[in-house]
């Protein structure tokens, strides 16, 4: 398990326009950090920088270290080693991570054989176990299916299974439930929560939805227009935000929530890593 340390990360276009400016944060092993921001905040570019997957034409500077390994400017070989066993990702649109022409089981076979050395019957069992672990019903049938044959929520479960198959230390989830129905969202968040807890992974959760992030993480980083607005403990930021912008986000979310009948909201996660 290693700590992810991002220091002075900037992302610029070829014309030297800064899309992310001097962003720093630390994600210690086993902890959970949420990045919250609106469109254009740079939250997804920050995640893609960590994965070494920035779109062509964008360049990251600064430092991103996973344990002792520097990822900014690292060779494709180093990055490939890190992606998968070190860091895995789940995105908003599961189809971006999944091959429409390959049966779901076959897609899972590669990471399982590559990262865990599974072969033959052990590999077959591993595939079924990986699908069962994300609570997919009838994993044998899902393994034989193509991605267009399963529902949106099930696709995201398959994408999560694919990410978990590598046994990563860190899971990056970029708007993992934004494209899903609200009742499915609750299930996927529950699944991510359990998976991260049981495997002792770190979680970097990126979202525009304050309620989602605060349910899942104990620390928050607020980005706007590529710049850091504020960071700190989730509970502190929600109750006593220092920045006007954070207050605007919190007040907006609360004002909409105020129209709903009160429920006993689950307590936010606290700093307890036992």
């Amino acid at each position: 398990m290693s700590t992810l340390t991002v220091n002075g990360l900037s992302v610029r276009t070829e014309e030297e326009r800064a899309l992310v400016s001097d962003v720093s944060f630390t994600l210690p092993a086993g902890e959970r950090l949420g990045i919250i921001g609106e469109s254009g905040s740079g939250k997804s570019l920050t995640a893609l920088s960590v994965l070494g997957l920035l779109p062509t034409g964008l360049r990251a500077t600064g430092s991103i270290r996973l344990g002792d390994t520097e990822l900014v400017g690292a060779s494709p070989r180093t990055l490939n080693g890190v992606r998968g066993s070190g860091i895995a990702a789940v995105f908003q649109e599961p189809l971006t991570a999944l091959d429409p022409l390959m049966r779901i089981g076959k897609q899972l076979a590669w990471p399982l054989s590559h990262h865990r050395g599974l072969r033959g019957d052990a590999l077959k069992r591993g595939i079924i176990e990986a699908l069962a672990a994300v609570a997919l019903p009838d994993p044998e049938k899902i393994a034989r299916s193509y991605i267009h044959e399963v529902s949106g929520g099930q696709r995201q479960r398959v994408a999560i299974a694919l990410a978990l198959a590598c046994n990563p230390d860190i899971l990056i989830a970029d708007e993992p439930t934004t494209a899903l129905d609200i009742s499915v969202q609750a299930e996927i968040l529950e699944l991510l929560d359990t998976a991260v807890r049981e495997r002792g992974m770190s979680l970097l959760l990126i979202s525009h939805d304050l309620a989602v992030v605060s349910r899942m993480t104990e620390h928050l980083l607020v980005l706007r227009g590529g710049e850091t607005i504020e960071q700190g403990a989730t509970r502190t930021l929600l109750t006593t935000p220092a920045a006007d912008y954070t207050r605007l986000l919190v007040d907006t979310a609360r004002s909409l929530e105020a129209y709903l009948p009160e429920v006993t909201a689950p307590a936010p996660r606290t700093e307890n890593h036992s």
Binding site: I182, S183, A211, A253, P261, P266, A267
Partner: peptide
């Protein structure tokens, strides 16, 4: 409907909305 939902599906929808911890 929000305060006293009659149908289980309405209750599911209401319960699924993620909420902020109270101030």
């Amino acid at each position: 409907v929000l305060a006293d939902p009659q149908h289980p599906y309405t209750r599911t929808l209401l319960a699924a909305i993620p909420r902020l911890p109270r101030a």
